[in-house]
């Protein structure tokens, strides 16, 4: 998902837990929310920081592939909608960083870890957006996949994370729809537009499936995170749900999902589908995807070139506070 392969801690059995850990686990099991200054296992705190940080990084790096097309949007209305959507992503990054900050890490620290490569962001944003149809595909597939994960996360055990997800889900409700609306226009448009739409689906299908992370059998960190309710479903569950919902939507568009093995399985009540190329996934995660350098480079550049701006405003605020203090003294 936006947080793929978050390293979690080893899972303890109830007998191995300390009394505090057991009490904590019982609270989580009862569905209670854990709030910032309450006692929590160090592993829970660390895993959450990694996960929320990765999620937040994904939102702000995720601005870039769509941001690409703001200046090339084909109508004034599409330009406004796309800009509003990409702006929302910055907002969602901000909410998530704020939630992570309640755990005692600063936003600047997290940013620096993103820039140094110590923290990751979702693999999906390392793929290029090549035509306008990609704005449709990203909204429809990428936001669609993200929603699969974010909706259940509204019930996550950590209070600030849960509240951030509630706000994000509320705001994101239009994102997938605007993407699908673009796809409909393209799929019903001229032959060139239809070709672009099919090409976008071809390119984004497997990377979207990768968003859910490796297969459950290879996903070593899931059990503890699920016990802590910071991961609500397994990767394969969500991937299946995504495929089941998306395939009929593709059919409605008259587009072909690029998977020859795709087939409804009456017995399972689900679609059978081909796994993405996991070697490619690990390469992208390692930094060797088509756009890793551009994406991270753009974020670093924005941060470095913005330093004088941030420092200038800090300096003014300090001077103004000193002036106010001086005039208060003079007035006394």
């Amino acid at each position: 998902m936006y947080a793929q392969m978050v390293k979690s801690e080893g899972m303890k059995s109830p007998e191995e837990m300390s009394p505090e850990e057991r009490a904590f686990q019982e609270r989580v099991d009862r569905g209670e929310k854990i709030e910032p200054k309450e006692w929590m296992p160090e592993g829970y705190r660390k895993t959450l920081i990694r996960q929320m940080g990765q999620h937040a990084h994904s939102e702000i790096v995720g601005q870039l592939p769509e941001g690409n097309w703001i200046t090339r949007a084909p109508t004034l209305e599409r330009k406004a909608i796309l800009l509003a959507k990409v702006q929302d992503e910055a907002g969602h990054g901000l909410y998530l960083y704020s939630a992570a900050e309640t755990l005692g890490v600063s936003r600047d620290e997290l940013m620096e870890k993103l820039h140094s490569g110590a923290m990751k962001y979702s693999s999906i944003f390392n793929y290029p957006t090549l035509t306008w149809a990609d704005m449709g595909a990203v909204g429809w597939l990428v936001d669609g996949a993200a929603i699969m994960n974010q909706v259940p996360l509204q019930r996550t055990s950590y209070g600030p994370y849960s509240r951030a997800m509630i706000r994000i889900c509320k705001e994101e409700s239009f994102h997938q729809r605007q993407g699908y609306a673009i796809m409909m226009k393209m799929a019903q448009g001229t032959p060139e537009q239809k070709e672009m739409a099919q090409d976008a689906l071809n390119r984004f299908w497997y990377p979207s499936l990768m968003m859910f992370g490796p297969s459950d059998k290879d996903s070593v960190h899931s059990a503890q995170s699920m016990a802590w309710k910071i991961k609500m479903n397994t990767n394969d569950e969500l991937r299946q749900k995504f495929v089941d919902e998306t395939v009929p939507q593709a059919k409605y568009l008259g587009l072909t999902v690029p998977d020859e093995t795709l087939k409804w399985n009456e017995e399972r009540g689900h679609y059978d589908f081909a796994e993405p190329d996991w070697d490619e996934f690990f390469e992208v995660i390692k930094g060797n995807g088509p756009c890793n350098e551009e994406r991270l480079g753009a974020r670093r550049e924005a941060w470095d070139k913005g330093a004088w701006f941030r420092d200038g405003l800090t300096a003014y605020a300090e001077k103004a506070a000193a002036r106010r203090a001086a005039s208060n003294v003079a007035a006394e």
């Binding site: 601005q63 941001g67 703001i70 910055a90 907002g91 753009a298 924005a302 701006f309």
Partner: peptide, 12 residues
């Protein structure tokens, strides 16, 4: 500037 602002609040 969208996505390239000096700080998130200003980007927004």
């Amino acid at each position: 500037w969208c996505g390239h602002g000096p700080v998130l609040e200003e980007d927004i």
